[in-house]
Write a protein that binds this DNA or RNA. Structure first.
Lengths: 334, 334
DNA sequence: TAGTTTGTATTACATTTGTATGACACTGGC
DNA sequence: GCCAGTGTCATACAAATGTAATACAAACTA
C-alpha cells in the first residue's frame, strides 16, 4: 500500500511545499504532475503524520493544571491540551501531544519493551510519533484483538508502531474476550502465551487509553461479546475500561465475569510497569478518567483541559469516601 | 515589543488555526477581531518560530552524505538538508535543521555552557529552537559585537537564545576587532574579560557559522574595520571566517594582523570544546566549509546537500597534505 | 473478453488566503 | 494646535487552495 518510492515522492512534495514554500501549482509543474495530485499528496502527508506541526508555546492554564495533576495524584508527568470546540478533534489533538511525548521519551531513555493498547486516540498517537530506528525495542500488544468488524485492530496498532520505529513487534494473538473465565484461564495456561505475558508484564512503558460505556466507544460497539450488555456493566458501577477491563468511579475493577474473560494484562498488575501513559479525553470520558486517576492506574496522563479539570475535581471531592447512595441501582448519571 | 498578552493571543490564534484547523475568518469571528489581524498574527507566528513544521522523513541521498561526512572527517554527527532552488532559503532551512538538532541536544544532555556565534543562519537557528526552561544553562557570545550598523548583533543573538531557553546570558561586551593586535592584547588582559573568556573556553557546546568573503557576508559588509579590505585577505588565501578569524583552504588561520585583532575565542582553542556545531551552507561558502572540514574545526556539521557534497569532494582531494592519526575528540555523549 | 475497480487527468467552481488600498483613530513630539 | 508616524478597519481583489463531476487508461476479475 505504501511503498518507498511513493513515500519518497510524498516527502519530496511535502518538502517543497512546507519547507521551501513553493505553491502547489509550481510543485506540480516542477515534478510533472497535476496540481490535484500534489494537493492530495499533501493531505495524505499531513494525515499520515509525515509532516507534523508543533506549537512552541504552552497555555498557562494547561501548564497549571498539569502541575496540580502531578502533585495531587502522584503522577510522573501530565500533558494537557486545550479542549477543541469540535469534540471529534479530541483524539487528534491528544494524539499529537501523546506522540510528541512518547517520541521524546524514546529518544531520551533506553526503552526495551513498550506495550500498547488500542483505540482511536492511540492510532493518532502513533501517527504523530517520529520515525526512528530502535532495533532493541520490542513493541507488543497488551490485549487481544477483535474477532470481527472494524479495520482498526490491536494487531494493526502494534505493528504500525513497530514499523514506524523499526522495532520488533509481538502480538497477543488471541481474542480480547474468551467465552468464559474458565476458558480464559485455559487459554492463558497454554505455553505459547506464557512467554508473551511475561514480556507484557515486563514492559518498561505501557501506552494505553480509556474507553467509556457510551456508543462512542469502539470496544462497546465492536468488542463486547454478544452475551454482555453495557447495562449490566453500568449497573455494577462501571464508568470505563482499560485494556478491556471495566472499573468503577473509584478505579476498582468491577465484579463482573467479563473482566475475568479479558485476555490482557490484568489491571492490578499494571502498577508493576514503570511508566504507564494514559491518553484519553473528551467529555464522555470524564468519569472514567477520574476513576483512573483516583486509583492511581496511570503514571503519565495526557488529556484535554476541560475533561482533566472536571475529572480532577471529581476525583478530588470523592477521594476520601465512596458513597453508593442507599438504594440507587439505576444507571449512574450521564 | 513582544509582551506576554500579545504572545498568548498569538498562541491562541496559532492553536486554533494549525491544531484545530479553523479557518482564519472563523477565528477572527470567534475572537472578535479582523480576519486581517488573524492573518498577520499567523504570519508572525510562523516567522517568529512559534509554530514549527517538521518532516518525519529524510532523503536517502542526504542520509548517505551525512554518513560519509561523519566517517571521513571524524565528525560526531552531520545533518544535511536538500538544497533549495532559491539560495535565499538556505539559511532558513539550515536554521530549521540546526534548531531541531540543538533542541534535541539540550533536551537529552545536561548542558551548562553554550557559546554562540553570529550570523543569519544562527538567527534562524534560534528561531527554530523549542522554548524551554534551563536555569542551569549559561548562553554566551563567543565573539565581540559590531560597533555600527545592522540590527543583527552578537548581543542580540545571545540574548534572544537565552530568553527562549530561560537561561543565563553572558555577553562579550567588546567590539569584534580591536584597533591593533597590541590593543587586543591589552583589552583582553583586563580582569573583566578574564572570567568571560574562561567561561567561553569552558563551554560544552559552541554553535557557530561560517562567513565567506563575498559581499553576501555580513561580517565583510558591516564588521570589517575600515583599514582592512577583503582583497588583502584573499591575497593571503582566505576563503572564510569563523568567529571573525579568517582561514585558508586548508582551514589554517591566515597570517594577517586582523586575526590577531579579533576579540573572540581563538580558533586553535576551539578543539577544547567538546561539541562544536557548525551550521553553514550555500554555494558561496563551499570553499570555506571545505577548509573547516579539512582542519577538523567542527564536530557537528549542518549544511545543505550541494554545498556539502562539493566541499566534501574538495576537502577529500586535498586531504593528503595534512591529516595525521585522527585522535580527534570522539568522546560520544550518548 | 467484457465488466469492474482503481487511480489519474481534465475541467470547473467555491472557498480560503494573501495583499493592496484609502479612511480613520490614536500617539507622541513640536 | 498641528503633524508625522503608527496601527487598525473596511473593502476589494488576485492568487492559492480544496472539492466535485466527468472522463480516460491500466490493472484486475469473472
Amino acid at each position: 500500500m505504501m511503498n518507498s518510492a511513493d513515500n519518497s515522492l510524498e516527502a519530496r512534495v511535502a518538502w517543497l511545499y512546507f519547507m521551501e514554500g513553493m505553491t502547489q501549482a509550481d510543485i506540480a509543474e516542477k515534478l510533472g504532475m497535476t496540481r490535484l495530485r500534489v494537493n492530495r499528496m499533501l493531505v495524505e502527508a499531513r494525515t499520515s503524520g509525515l509532516v507534523s506541526i508543533t506549537l512552541n508555546s504552552r497555555f498557562a492554564t494547561c501548564v497549571e493544571l498539569e502541575q496540580s495533576l502531578v502533585r495531587e495524584f502522584g503522577l510522573k508527568d501530565a500533558v494537557i491540551v486545550p479542549t477543541p470546540d469540535d469534540p471529534d478533534l479530541v483524539p487528534v489533538l491528544l494524539g499529537q501531544a501523546a506522540g510528541e511525548y512518547l517520541s521524546n521519551l524514546l529518544e531520551t531513555n533506553r526503552v526495551r519493551g513498550l506495550g500498547i493498547g488500542w483505540g482511536a486516540t492511540l492510532r493518532e498517537t502513533i501517527r504523530n510519533m517520529r520515525a526512528g530506528r530502535y532495533p532493541e525495542l520490542c513493541v507488543n500488544s497488551m490485549m487481544g484483538g477483535l474477532t470481527h468488524g472494524l479495520e482498526l485492530n490491536t494487531f494493526e496498532t502494534a505493528s504500525s508502531l513497530a514499523n514506524r520505529l523499526n522495532a520488533e513487534c509481538q502480538y497477543l494473538a488471541a481474542p480480547i474476550y474468551a467465552g468464559s473465565p474458565k476458558s480464559r484461564d485455559i487459554i492463558l495456561a497454554q505455553d505459547v502465551f506464557r512467554e508473551t505475558f511475561e514480556r507484557i508484564a515486563a514492559n518498561d512503558i505501557a501506552v494505553l487509553s480509556i474507553g467509556d460505556l457510551s456508543l462512542r466507544s469502539l470496544l462497546v460497539r465492536y468488542g463486547l461479546p454478544r452475551d454482555v450488555t453495557t447495562d449490566e456493566l453500568v449497573a455494577l458501577g462501571a464508568v470505563g475500561d482499560i485494556l478491556g477491563q471495566f472499573y468503577d468511579a473509584d478505579g476498582h475493577v468491577i465484579d463482573h465475569p467479563l473482566n475475568a474473560r479479558a485476555i490482557a494484562l490484568p489491571l492490578d498488575q499494571l502498577s508493576r510497569i514503570p511508566t504507564v501513559v494514559l491518553a484519553s479525553g473528551g467529555k464522555n470520558k470524564t468519569q472514567a478518567v477520574a476513576g483512573a486517576l483516583k486509583a492511581g492506574l496511570a503514571s503519565v496522563v495526557i488529556c484535554d483541559e476541560d475533561t482533566a479539570r472536571a475529572a480532577c475535581e471529581m476525583a478530588r471531592s470523592g477521594k476520601a469516601s465512596r458513597r453508593p447512595a442507599p438504594s440507587q441501582r439505576r444507571r449512574s448519571s450521564r
